[in-house]
Design a protein around this nucleic acid. Structure first.
Lengths: 142, 142
DNA sequence: CCAACATGTAACTACAATAGTTACAGGAAT
DNA sequence: ATTCCTGTAACTATTGTAGTTACATGTTGG
């Protein structure tokens, strides 16, 4: 299992919108950079739009960032593309047997642990801004 | 997407082995506590056995912990049941276009970030011992 | 005003992982 | 030798992902 590449593709899309901000970034153009189908790009761009990260209008070619890159965190993007449910990173078997000491208590014990493990991961994402990604990309081009 | 419930089931299994250490914990018995099929339990127990966390022999009813509960961390269990590849929590789209500034650099930028996010999550798991789980379960019974 | 072009989205396919199930081979012990 | 258990192969159903085709809808320049 892994977290859907929608997340990494979304970061890729937003990076292009900033790096190539003077150009017209159509789904076809972005798709050729990501190396996928334009419909995949439009689907993800739609999610980013609903989350208020991107501005895009039917019929009007190209998309633009709706916010400054320093106001967008990786966690914002991660939430936008709906790759992991809130407190749902770890699957938990349901309906354990209440007639067993372990069965009737296991969920209450592990769910908070799973939640805090997930939060620790998400906190790392929250600490990185799109701006940092752009800077890293441009630094690699020097 | 979520991380397979094999992980939570494995924690459940190991907890039973400790809490009911004086009894004979067959796959049928454990399955009735987890509320699943005995084969599912045997599959997971097999993984835990390969990882050296459990002792089980063909033909001999029941399984036993191979280590002290204070020497088993949730990370050990997580690794044993193979729910997430090393550095593979986040899926990354492959073959982005090298003719594009973003395309040729995006992977180099995001992979280390993904790795550190994953590690942060795994560090939380590493900090919890099976012994802690057992204590929490028993505390809830008081 | 309409032709050309882009976005939005439904519908379908292929593929992989998960979880449950049946069936049965093989080991252990009374 | 019978009985019970573990190990495992094989199959199913379900779900999520990613790619693709097709087409309706919206915009704009000539």
């Amino acid at each position: 299992m892994n977290i859907s590449s929608r997340f990494s593709v979304a970061i890729h899309i937003l990076s292009i919108l900033e790096v190539n901000k003077t150009g017209t970034n159509t789904s076809d153009f972005i798709a050729s950079s990501v190396n996928t189908n334009p419909v995949v790009i439009r689907r993800i761009t739609g999610m980013l739009s609903k989350a208020g990260l991107v501005e895009v209008k039917p019929g009007v070619p190209g998309a633009k960032l709706a916010k400054d890159p320093s106001d967008i965190t990786l966690l914002d993007i991660y939430n936008a593309v709906n790759v992991v449910e809130e407190n749902g990173l770890f699957g938990v078997h349901d309906s354990p047997n209440p007639d067993c000491t372990v069965g009737r208590n296991i969920q209450g014990v592990i769910v908070p642990l799973f939640t805090s493990a997930q939060k620790a991961m998400e906190n790392v994402l929250a600490a990185v801004k799109l701006q940092d990604i752009i800077q890293d990309i441009e630094a690699l081009e020097m």
